[in-house]
Design a protein around this nucleic acid. Structure first.
Lengths: 210, 210
DNA sequence: CAGAAAACGCAACCGAGTAACAAAAGATTC
DNA sequence: GAATCTTTTGTTACTCGGTTGCGTTTTCTG
């Protein structure tokens, strides 16, 4: 049960990191589909089977970063101040991440992050693989909402809606940034959309005439 | 602009159908991953390149049926009775499809349909490919909602929520059927969940204490 | 230091998907 | 109805993602 194991574990961590970093560098440089795993393996100085011992699929070389943020929504709900509604906590958190230009909100104009986003949205196989990560996120959030008192069906429905909405917001923000850097207007629009989205989630579609 | 073209077109239709049918039969019999496209091509008596001229990917051999239902939600919204809210039309339509045991609702215990559903949910690559079809569905619905008077952002957010909810409902119904055939209780539960889901969509998460 | 266990490289392999080119079959024109 | 043009097809061969088997190296354990 020791966390700090020896040399072997450190080497594995390093190999993993090297692999992912060189892969992403190559992907951003030439495009995901125009880089073969053999090239990545060669550039990272490991064999092809070894690469696949670290990452189950080519897509995971690029996506495993996303996994770091997995379960974030669930965590926000679980760690909210007592007396706060889950949705209120999520709303506040999203606005805060927006102000922090967190990449998960799509509102981050650091060139490398932006390029990564471009790749993500323009590569079919990455989109496809992303589904797996999203599903995990939904399940975690549904669990947290159930703990918060919602019955099971409601929790699953709500979790799905919330996660889906987050992705729409992130994508819209990315579209905004594709046309230029972050300005006051962009930031304001992002916040406004988030407000609208959370109003929709909280009060439903009916008040909108839908 | 003539719809009824000659022999060539008919042959193409037939080849396409044969291909898809023999493929699905093999998939249901032995599992999607344990059938190679070469086998499908051989069974349908065409060459492998020809197979791929008809279906861009192996997954589409199984999924192109789903494509027939594509844009259904958008259609329901567009064809609704004047004076009806989009959400009300969708709710009524979903209940109707439930009563009709439409496969899209997940509530269909015809063995072949059930087996197809099993395959769909247990095969990663099919799930991944499905994303593409779902995205198209969302865009279509968003368009219809925008026509119905919603502003663009709201339309996209609402469309995403609605489509996502449909999938949760369908999956839950499939889970119910995996444990047995359709009974009165199952049907009632399916309707109840649909009610709950549309209440959530219409009135939001706040009234649920979320 | 010896031996177990883990990680690695190599080579060969499978299956999905594509390219090139030639052969066949349907459509078209006279 | 033959000649021709166009579309579709089969064959072969290839690329690339991913896996397997096996022998070798490296690290951990005592």
């Amino acid at each position: 049960m020791n966390e700090e194991t020896g040399l072997r574990e450190r080497k594995k961590q390093r190999t993993r990191q090297t692999l992912s970093e060189t892969a992403i560098a190559l992907f951003l440089e030439r495009g995901f589909d125009r880089v073969s795993v053999a090239e990545v393996a060669a550039a990272a100085e490991v064999s092809k089977p070894t690469l696949f011992r670290y990452f189950p699929a080519k897509e995971d070389l690029a996506l495993h970063r996303i996994a770091d943020h997995q379960g974030e929504a669930a965590r926000v709900v679980r760690d909210r101040e007592p007396g706060t509604a889950p949705l209120a906590a999520l709303r506040a958190h999203f606005h805060a991440r927006l102000d922090a230009r967190d990449p998960v909100t799509g509102l981050c104009d650091v060139p490398a992050v932006l390029a990564f986003r471009d790749m993500l949205y323009s590569t079919q196989s990455l989109q496809a693989r992303l589904v797996h990560y999203v599903a995990e996120d939904e399940r975690a959030l549904a669990g947290a909402l159930a703990e918060a008192g919602a019955d099971e069906v409601t929790a699953r429905l709500a979790a799905t809606q919330i996660i889906a909405v987050h992705h729409v917001l992130a994508r819209d923000n990315w579209v905004r940034l594709s046309a230029g850097s972050i300005t006051g207007a962009v930031l304001a629009a992002a916040h406004a959309d988030a407000e609208r989205a959370y109003d929709l989630l909280g009060a439903g579609l009916a008040p909108q005439g839908l």
